[in-house]
Structures are given as structure tokens and as C-alpha cells.
Write a protein that binds this DNA or RNA. Structure first.
Lengths: 157, 157
DNA sequence: ACCTCATCTGACTTTGTTTGACTTTTACTT
DNA sequence: AAGTAAAAGTCAAACAAAGTCAGATGAGGT
């Protein structure tokens, strides 16, 4: 039973995949109507799942002929992509944010499904049994270390 | 007279058996209603009978569209294999011992090289920055959890 | 009867989603 | 230039889950 937000997310991602240039332009009201939700629900989804950290840019325009344009960032090279990922993790990261990052990596084809699962578990609060201010820091360090090890190993040897 | 907790346990196990992939997804409130108990009773059962040591992984999500997913990590055949590894790890494990176990799994072909690298980093004392009696416990839980998640994926999907 | 441990409950918390009323911006019309 | 309608944006409140925890209750062992 995926939530409405999940459905909207999937729908938009499908549109982007089908697009030639990773850019998709929608009309908020029209999309809301098609997916049977209130228009502001679209904003919620964009705000929670299509942020810069997730690798997307949003441009929009109001008024007659208005639109929302969703752009999937094309990272120049792996470096830029990883830069963005590591920046998003920072010195401390919540479980949900970590999960989103891992998901993005998987969707970008940087890690396998098994690796995704491994990482997702490593980031679980039930596993990282440390009191809270430190847990997020430990999670950040752990995730960054693991990613650093596995990602830049690709090109080398 | 089986206790309520026993009934819930049996019910969930039946669901898993009937499932194709040893994974079952429930809604806590719905299940609580069906089994005539308070929702938190479900948590109690999960916490006492579906732990990692029992061979299960739990994932969940709150809010609208929330769920609890229960994953049985091994079928009968693999059970012994897990018990051996989990036994070797125990409740606390040193970095060197953890490395040995990871290496053995790699040599046995259970994990890929990248996975080996991920696991090895996760188990590094420079990454697990926690004072020492706890560090070995954290490492044990982390390693067992990660292995449970990734080894589980071997056969199917 | 008493003790201990497992079970059960309910109040409260946290997280995530959905909705609708209201605001702002823009293009078009007059 | 002013007015109007057509977008999209904002925000707080309502709703919908699951999580936590401490205390009550119960069952088996001595």
C-alpha cells in the first residue's frame, strides 16, 4: 500500500526516465488531477523527494502558462556526483536521509541491490545503538567511509 | 494455553511460510485489530521473537502508508550456516576477528569483493568511534545485521 | 505465599502524509 | 494602466501510521 506521495514520486521518475534529456515539465493542476490529489500534494512530493540533495533541480513559473520543470542533475563526472553525495551526508545524518542517499546511489547504478541492502541496514537506528547526538555522527562517518571505499574502487584496479 | 504473544508469533510465522520470498508486510494496527490486542503488543512480539538472533530482520515506516516488514533471513538449508557465523561473532567481536570472518565468507564465495570491502570498512575501529567495551558490541551487531541482510539475498531475487 | 520473569496495556511521542484556505506571480484583456 | 483569471507557492492543521516506556498483571517455580 504505497502512499499517494510514493505514487507521485514514481510517476515523476518514470517521466524523467522516458525523457530524452532528464528534464520533465508538468502542470501542477493537471498532474494533480490525473493522480487524484490536491495540487499542493505535488509540492510536498517535490519538497521531500526531488531536492538538490536528491539530485534534482526544480524550476517553475506561476500564472497563465505556468509550469513546473524537474531536472535530474547530470553530474559532469563521478567526482561531481560523489561530491554531492558526500556533501549531503555531512558530519551527521539522520536515518531517513541516509536511506534516501543510498536509494539515490542505487538508482544511479552506483551500487548493486545487495550493496544497497547492506548499507541500509548499516544505517538503521536499531543497529547503531548509540545515544542520539552521536548516533547521527557515527552514521555519517560510517556511511561516508563505506561509500568512499566501494565507490572509488570502481575505476582503480 | 498459548499466550497472546504466542498466537501473534504463530500467525506471523504462518504468513511468512505462505509467502513466496520469506518476506511479509503488515500494518500494525490492522493486525492488532484482527488479533484483538493493543498495537504495541505487536512490537513486543517482534522485539522478543523476531530478532536477528531468531533469524529475522524488521523494517518499518511510520505515517500514512506506514508498514512493518518482517524478513526471515534463511530457509532451513541455510540455518546452520548462519548459526555458525553468528555464533562466531557472538555479542562482541574484535576488529581482527571480524576481518577473519569477512575474509572467510569472501573465500567461500558468499560475498563479492566490493561487499568484502564495505564490510571491512564498517568494522574498522577508526570508523566505529565508540569507547571500547561498547565498540565490540556495536561491531558484532552491525556485522551480524549486515550479513543477515546480504546473505539472505543470495538465492532468490 | 513469594519471587521473578514474561506478558499485556495504555498514555504519550515521533514521523510522515494529506488537505484546504489563503497568498503571490504572471499573462491576458480591456 | 488596471483588472481579472490562471497558474503555482505557502503553511498550519488534521490525519495516519508506528515507536517507546513504565507500570499492571499473570504464570511458573521454590
Amino acid at each position: 500500500m504505497p502512499s499517494l506521495a510514493d505514487l507521485i514520486e514514481q510517476y515523476i521518475k518514470k517521466l524523467i526516465q522516458e525523457s530524452e534529456d532528464r528534464v520533465v515539465e508538468i502542470q501542477r493542476n493537471e498532474l494533480a488531477e490525473k493522480l487524484r490529489c490536491v495540487p499542493s500534494q505535488i509540492n510536498y512530493v517535490l519538497a521531500t523527494r526531488f531536492t538538490l540533495e536528491h539530485g534534482y533541480l526544480i524550476e517553475s513559473r506561476r500564472g497563465g502558462g505556468g509550469y513546473i520543470r524537474i531536472i535530474k542533475i547530470a553530474d559532469q563526472d563521478r567526482e561531481a556526483f560523489y561530491q554531492r553525495i558526500f556533501g549531503a551526508i555531512g558530519d551527521a545524518v539522520s536515518e531517513s536521509k541516509a536511506r534516501e542517499i543510498i536509494k539515490a546511489l542505487y538508482e544511479a547504478g552506483s551500487i548493486t541491490e545487495r550493496e544497497k541492502r547492506l548499507l541500509t541496514i548499516a544505517v538503521d537506528r536499531k543497529v547503531l545503538q548509540v545515544p542520539l547526538p552521536y548516533r547521527d555522527e557515527l552514521r555519517a562517518l560510517l556511511l561516508k567511509s563505506m561509500l568512499a571505499g566501494v565507490l572509488n574502487a570502481e575505476e582503480g584496479n
